[in-house]
Design a protein around this nucleic acid. Structure first.
Lengths: 132, 132
DNA sequence: TTGCGATCTTTACAGTTGTAGAGTAGTCTC
DNA sequence: GAGACTACTCTACAACTGTAAAGATCGCAA
């Protein structure tokens, strides 16, 4: 259930982001879509994508002479992996100290803080609602 | 002021953690300290540490025939880098959605939630106190 | 049928990361 | 002063990551 921890590299994040948005899509599409952010040639993108298939991050389906890619991990899974990595490395896996750190070291407007507060309160109400 | 973004690798985190705790310390100390967690030989640890010096993550001072290492980045800086990396990769750099994700996807006890809530409230009071 | 454009395949290469063996040098002890 | 320790230096190597050129293919238009 713990949706095993996927760890994507920088380039992989860049690519899977586009795939999520255009799924199913071909390599040239991804390359064009990323053209502004990274100056990657078609070759580069294609190589990266094929490696991601090998790793189980994407899947392919060949239709005639075109290869369509789909994501094999959801955004949620990928995010979870990223957060977990950061948490274990930098905070010994403990969430609360991390939150504390964020609050201390990032400049949040009062509006943002208020948003968070209400988010938490809502969550607590919900939790309490279903016991526990 | 934005304490430039340091990005440490897994192994580097492991090592700098020990250095922070024993600073200033010699390579063999670090190796011994990590013996249980990672089965790294002295060679491995030393190589890693020297690379960290080259990268500016640690500094050295030679005393007679012993080399003492010190951290060149604080825990706060390292944490900040790690959080920033995760934020940009997985959340387009936006903090609030990240917080939201954490609240949704991690199971926090009511006590933890309460802790967070009060942390935020305290922060808001403080901020309001000094205007802004 | 012939060349052209779009796409895919193969191969490569440099830099980083994890891992460590082998050899060298200073120090302590008998 | 010779061996045993301890710590250091040098070198290596495989996997992974970013990056891409060169060549092979296939369908279409002239």
């Amino acid at each position: 259930m713990t949706t095993k921890g996927y760890e994507l590299t920088e380039a992989e994040w860049e690519i899977i982001q586009v795939v999520w948005a255009h799924e199913p899509c071909a390599a040239p599409t991804v390359q064009e879509e990323l053209e502004d952010r990274r100056q990657w040639t078609y070759s580069t993108v294609k190589t990266l994508m094929d490696r991601m298939v090998a790793k189980g991050l994407l899947t392919t389906e060949r239709i005639r002479n075109l290869i369509l890619y789909r994501s094999a991990v959801t955004q949620k899974q990928a995010r979870k992996g990223e957060v977990a990595r950061m948490l274990t490395r930098a905070f010994g896996g403990a969430l609360t100290p991390m939150m504390q750190f964020l609050l201390e070291s990032h400049t949040l407007s009062d509006a943002e803080l208020a948003g968070l507060e209400s988010m938490i309160r809502k969550k607590r109400r919900r939790e309490r609602g279903r016991g526990e």
